[in-house]
Design a protein around this nucleic acid. Structure first.
Lengths: 249, 249
DNA sequence: TGTTTGCATTGATCCAGGTCAAGAACTCTG
DNA sequence: CAGAGTTCTTGACCTGGATCAATGCAAACA
């Protein structure tokens, strides 16, 4: 019970408090990170009506599969997800990790079918935004559309940064960048920037960064030897965030 | 004059015919590829008013620089562009190439400043869409907003595919994927799928694919030896598109 | 309680593709 | 059209990180 790997997933409490009680957008703790930002409160009430608060998913359960017809965009409410695209002969690329307040499935708007598979990394829940209804309401609420574009744009720009990472960074820089990015995202969500749990496996991390699992393992070892981080299974303590940031390249 | 490298850039004719005569959206040859798709003709007339048809750019001239305040989204009208992001110590990643009908600058909506630098690869011209005015009009034209989202989504999904390329593909697969993608894009624009000019340098290609220039050069050589393509400076002839597609992985 | 199954670490070896170096070919400029 | 950059190609060599292999370790099961 006191072992590192038994620590409760970070975002589970949120799930209990907010998901299970069907909290309205107005009083959701994710408000600040989510779509409603910039909407008037009467618009908000409207938006609230079209959001489906779906039941929670358990570890490894998929939210949607690649090629399935596009119906909804999802906002992570609690837990964490990964998305993957598969190339031929079974090779897969983990294209992203998603935390509360982040949007999944936006790359399906154009093609009208999901381009990737989204899987829960731990017990998680989402808000579902049926896209058709979003469009209907959007006609009367241009601010909502602009918000949506803004979210799309945000993901676009983080994807471009990932291209730099995959195309130009060394293994060490990749690892540092990954840890710093996690740290910032946890902080944005009101959690510690220096102590958190990894919800994904070493394999997922390696895959996402374009490395082999062994390399990730060795690199974690080295960062630990250098006293930049401390690792115990899935729990991470960043001991020198500044040094880590310098390593990002 | 008869040498391969002196062949006129592919999209220059379009520039002459359409840009310099200030063609309206309704009668633009790019109509099918561009924003207006799905708009009513009176909406189209409105849209037409807010589009600024800017003068053309010459080779190496930048359309915008990284960090500059976001004002407009641009649609390539003729020519070709590349976008780059720079990491530390001068390393740069070419994040994309853009051809007529494609949008540049969408990753700046969220941050309100351009995240990359856009440079013309040859004499080129663009349509400028001032984003503020686009928003104003969007309020009355929800279809326009949806179109914009769709374009954003399209770029998102092609970026995800680029992640697979950078993270999981071999050098040969990368080259094949690149050529096939160019081929398809030229075809979509009504040009030959098997004969075209590269508007970018070997260096740009290498950088974009996460390879060294030398590797690109050798790979071009090998593809040529294997009779899949023929190369003469910047002019490409695809001799076996199907085989090339099989190589994409 | 031992067994299975999946994840993580560690060491030894290997190779795809990077780096370095030297020419060749092209492209600009005056 | 000569000369000076560039950009491209080709060869020789090297290395970062992949792959292979063995072991450790913890949760899940029967």
């Amino acid at each position: 019970m006191t072992q590192a790997n038994n620590v409760a997933p970070l975002f589970r409490d949120l799930a209990k408090v907010e998901h299970e009680h069907h909290v309205a957008c107005q009083s959701c703790a994710l408000y600040r990170l989510c779509l409603p930002l910039g909407l008037h409160s009467d618009d908000l009430a409207q938006l609230d009506k079209i959001i489906k608060r779906s039941q929670s998913l358990s570890r490894n359960q998929s939210l949607f599969d690649s090629q399935a017809p596009f119906k909804s965009i999802y906002v992570v409410r609690s837990g964490a997800f990964k998305t993957t695209i598969s190339a031929s002969n079974g090779r897969e690329q983990v294209t992203g990790f998603y935390f509360p307040g982040e949007f999944i499935g936006m790359d399906a708007i154009y093609s009208q079918s999901y381009q990737s598979t989204a899987k829960a990394l731990e017990t998680s829940s989402v808000c579902e935004l049926p896209f058709e209804r979003l469009q209907e309401f959007g006609a009367a609420m241009p601010q909502l559309q602009v918000q949506m574009m803004s979210r799309l744009s945000k993901e676009l720009s983080s994807d471009k940064n990932l291209m730099v990472l995959l195309g130009k960074k060394t293994a060490e820089e990749k690892m540092a960048t990954f840890l710093v990015s996690l740290s910032r995202r946890f902080q944005d969500r009101g959690f510690s920037a220096t102590e958190f749990q990894l919800s994904m496996s070493r394999g997922d991390i390696a895959n996402h960064l374009g490395l082999a699992v062994e390399t990730v393992s060795r690199l974690f070892g080295r960062l630990q030897d250098d006293r930049l981080v401390r690792l115990e299974g899935k729990s991470v303590t960043i001991e020198d965030l500044e040094a880590l940031q310098k390593l990002c390249g």
